[in-house]
Every structure is written in C-alpha cells, then in structure tokens.
C-alpha cells in the first residue's frame, strides 16, 4: 500500500531553480566559488586562455607546476595520442620560481581568478624552499605535485607515505594558505598515501595525476616518446580516477578533488557521487578549450536532477550496487 505524501517530505524538484543551486564548496580551509578547477599543466599560465575563457568564472586555476630551478623539459616528442587518451612526458618545462614570481604572478594575480600555485621538488628541501618563497604572496592555495611521473625522483613523495607526510607537514610549517596534495595512481594503495597527507595537515588531495604508460613504433622498434615512458591522461583513464576517488573517500576523511578524463557533465557528476568535492579539468582543455565553463553552467541542472539543493548534498552519495542476480 502506498503512503500519501506528507508535509515532512523534501520540496519537489520543481521548487528548485538553477539560480538557487549553490555551487560553493569547502575543502578543509579551502573555499571554492564553484567546484570546477583547471588542472596544472593543462592550462599554461592562464594568459594563453584569456582570449577564450572568462578566467574569474572558473572555480580556480592551477598554473603549470613550478620548480625551484628552471627546467628546459624533455626533448620532443613530448606527447603521443593513444586510444581515447594522451600520453605525455613534458618534463616540467618551466623557468623556475624566481621567474614565476617576477613574470607570471603579477598577471595571474591581476586576473581576479582564484589561483592555486602548483609546485614540485626533486628533494624535500626543494618543496620547503618553494613554499617559503611563495608564502609572502598570500596565495589562495598551493598544490603539492608529489606525483609527476616524468621527473626523476619526483614520484617518490607520492609513493612513500613517510616521505609524503614529511613534505606536507614541512610545507604546512612555512606557509599559511590551504594545501592540496596531488596524488599518483601508480601505487598499490592510494588511500594509504592520502591518509599520510591528511594526517600531515593537507586540506585536500587531488586524485589523480597521470597513469604511467608507454607507446611504441614497432616498425622502427622505438618508443614514441623521447622520454620512453610518460603519463596517460584523457577519457581512457577516467575509470581509474573514479576508482581512486572512491577508494580514498571510503577510507580517509580528507576532501578530494577528482581529476582524470573529465569532459562532460556526466563525467563530472560521477566524480561528485564517488566522493569528490571538486574536480579539475585536464586534457579536455586541449581538445575542447571551453569545456570548463560549459560544465559550470551545466552543474545546477544536473544537481537538481538528484533533487538536491546544492552540490554538497551530492558529494559522496554513492550507494551499494543493490540487488544482483545470483546464479544458483
């Protein structure tokens, strides 16, 4: 027998309008105006995109990762397309922290967008020096790239929970802004690394950096990338990224920023349901440069589909698989 509608039931979906849907999210000390960020290394230094996108509309911008000293990056070929994916070994091509502060930061600050500076170190000390140098700038937030697969030594901080804990707590001691730690999927247990970063005081973790891979030209019997191996991104890795977000969300109480193959509103919603509080758009910026703005505009309607009045009611709402037919 059906029960009649009672007054205590939530307002019908029709009562919510797109305008009334809140897109604000809080991740630790990090407060985002909306949950759609653009991933480091896939948006240049933002200036390149200013002719295409109204930058302050984004939830946040992560410029290309900065290292202590200038790095020329790897020799070409630096990227190779694979099935529904892109393999890259750029090699953290950048002009170093001093150049960044002098030349990129004034522009970035002037955009009016919320800028999250991504840093990577070869050593523990590198991370600390970078954070110290950035501290006086009063950053919106900082992302620790402990997971770049294309730099010798770069990945250790993302695969060893002890080294990861030490870097995060070290950075926390020298900078006041919110800290995000970007994790690699190239580990046995990503939750274990997320837990270490969380205990060390990270405000959020980004899941995931690229998946280590390679591509070969068998006729020439050579790798296609000059670096031999590289990081895979794009729609091909979305299932891996979703799995990582889900595993971290199930085991660690740390806010998560999901990234990996997101290109449509359905992709975005899958990450929120899996447990991500925000997302980053990466490779899709390359082949669909307006994607981030389109997703921000599509979010309210998608949130209403679930009868929620704000994004926070959607995050981590994944249910168990439900009834499954069992063969006797």
């Amino acid at each position: 027998m059906k029960t009649p509608m009672s007054a205590s039931q939530p307002a019908p979906k029709d009562a919510l309008t797109n305008e009334s849907i809140s897109l604000q999210v809080q991740l630790g000390r990090l407060k985002l105006k909306n949950p759609v960020l653009v991933a480091s290394g896939t948006f240049g230094y933002a200036k390149e995109m200013a002719g295409l996108i109204d930058l302050p509309k984004l939830g946040g911008i992560l410029p290309k990762t900065i290292t202590h000293h200038a790095r020329p990056g790897n020799a070409p070929w630096r990227t190779v397309e694979t099935s529904a994916g892109l393999l890259n070994a750029i090699g953290l091509d950048n002009d170093g922290i001093d150049y960044f502060i002098e030349n990129h930061w004034p522009y970035l600050k002037g955009t009016g967008a919320d800028i999250i500076v991504s840093i990577a170190g070869k050593s523990h000390e590198d991370f600390i020096v970078l954070a110290e140098r950035l501290s006086p700038l009063g950053l919106f937030a900082i992302e620790l790239n402990v997971s770049c697969p294309n730099v010798s030594g770069g990945i250790d901080f993302g695969t060893d929970p002890v080294a990861c804990h030490r870097v995060v707590s070290g950075v926390r001691n020298v900078i006041d802004c919110p800290i995000i730690t970007k994790l690699t999927p190239n580990v046995t247990s990503i939750a274990e690394i997320a837990k270490a970063a969380h205990e060390a005081g990270t405000d959020a973790v980004t899941c995931i950096n690229t998946v280590l891979g390679m591509a070969i030209d068998w006729r020439r019997q050579r790798p296609l990338l000059a670096n031999t191996v590289g990081g895979l991104s794009g729609p091909a890795i979305k299932p891996i990224a979703l799995r990582c977000v889900y595993q971290v969300a199930s085991k660690v109480a740390v806010p998560i920023i999901g990234v990996g193959g997101i290109a449509t509103i359905d992709d975005a919603m899958e990450f929120f349901v899996a447990g991500a509080s925000a997302i980053q758009i990466g490779t899709a910026n390359y082949y669909d440069p307006l994607v981030s703005i389109r997703l921000i505009e599509a979010l309210p309607s998608a949130i209403r589909t679930l009868g929620a009045s704000g994004l926070s009611e959607v995050i981590g709402t994944l249910k168990s698989p439900g009834s499954v037919a069992v063969k006797k």
Binding site: G41, T42, F43, G44, E48, M49, L52, K64, G73, P76, W77, R78, T79, E81, L86, N88, I90, D93, N285, Y286, Y287, P289
Partner: peptide, 16 residues
C-alpha cells in the same frame, strides 16, 4: 610543422 596537442599554448607539446 611540429606535432601539437592544443595549438593554443597550454600543453607545451610543440616545442622547437
């Protein structure tokens, strides 16, 4: 004619 991925300066593929 260096290979490119984005054409707009954000990927750093096409360096010479």
């Amino acid at each position: 004619e260096t290979p490119m991925a984005c054409g707009i300066g954000i990927c750093f593929t096409c360096v010479a």
